[in-house]
Design a protein around this nucleic acid. Structure first.
Lengths: 203, 203
DNA sequence: TATTTTATCTGCACTCAGTGCAACTATTTT
DNA sequence: AAAATAGTTGCACTGAGTGCAGATAAAATA
């Protein structure tokens, strides 16, 4: 009942164990995917390598896919948070561009390349990755809407969110195709510049 | 050996049967999905309703998902074909906008609404639908590239394809959410207008 | 037309993902 | 220390998807 002078105040044994197990599963999964490919590694093996039963695996992840998907599940929220954090002033376009740059700056290049390589191993993971872009768009749109709640701006803000997520995706596709030759910031900036070049000049 | 004065010159019995069976499967699938939901209908039932064996089903479709996916699999190619068909002159933006309008004009509203409703019944179909937008983008980009092959335009054309497919997707999301209240042309035009409004005016 | 070649259809047996249930074990609360 | 609660596990089951081998139908050849 009393708050003991404990290092980790209220993170009970349960939650700690849960997080450790979660990590063991993802580690085991990633290792096995690298070793035998996504399809080649079974849930049974992954669970065994993580020291849990097959059945327990499904208490942590709804599907095998989710191991990989969880590695980039919070990008949408990061994106939205960055938009909310940003100071007032500046155009909406600059706002989302800078938010994208901030978010992506926080992700190690090597991780991006490695995760992308693994995801290519499964068509359904690949598909769900594309689907996750829609969710990112939704999260970003919500954040933008808080700043510009005027009803008549809705469509434009949806378009802006779509373009921001789309440009980021194009940049990451290019970055991965190039194998990380150029720094991601540069590629990303190029994508956003191309948006302005294509649309601001056009009659 | 000789070309007989035949009604259907070279469509052999085989191809005809194949197409009929394909149609029977999709019809049976759609009916059963409506009746019992996507997850509720098994491949076994669909095959039986189409008059073939379970095993044969997988000679026609790689997965249950593909029944629904096949209903809109050629949108990307239609889009690209429209771009190739278009007369020279006009801005790239106008070109893709008009191509989008042409393609979408050829799809019955009721079908769009019905297919969308069915697709909501399965997360994996939903995911693969999102993934199909990437393929549409790719097809559209190829067609655009034929017209403007200059190397330094590549990124801008990728952006243009992304925006065109994205705007079309946003429009169809809105159209479906509204239940077809406004005609699709109008919603689609609104999405493309919003692109110009958002980016051509911004500093 | 009869025969050979070739593509398609089918049943069977199998692997694996994912789920519901009930017993069991560990944590937390009282 | 006991009772309540939450996590773990084994078991049995459904259903998707695949490889294989024999049967069947279409197409080419003679």
């Amino acid at each position: 009942m009393v708050d003991l002078p404990d290092a980790s105040p209220s993170i009970g044994v349960r939650e700690r164990k849960r997080r450790e197990t979660l990590r063991r599963i993802t580690d085991a999964g990633v290792c096995l995917f690298i070793e035998k490919g996504f399809e080649g590694a079974t849930v049974e093996e992954i669970a065994a390598a993580a020291g849990i039963s097959r059945r327990s695996f499904f208490h942590y992840f709804e599907s095998k896919d989710d191991i990989l998907l969880s590695l980039q599940s919070d990008v949408g929220e990061l994106f939205a948070a960055e938009v909310r954090r940003a100071p007032p002033g500046g155009s909406p376009f600059e706002l989302v561009r800078d938010a994208a740059l901030s978010v992506c700056a926080s992700i190690p290049h090597d991780d991006m390349l490695a995760i992308d390589r693994l995801m290519r191993g499964s068509a359904s993971v690949q598909a769900r990755k594309q689907a996750s872009y829609r969710q990112q768009e939704e999260a970003l749109f919500s954040a933008l809407r808080e700043r510009w709640p005027e009803p008549d701006r809705e469509t434009r803000l949806r378009v802006l969110a779509m373009v921001a997520v789309g440009a980021t995706r194009l940049a990451s596709e290019t970055f991965n195709k190039e194998g990380g030759a150029r720094p991601f910031d540069e590629v990303l900036r190029g994508a956003f510049d191309a948006v302005m070049a294509e649309f601001s000049a056009t009659a």
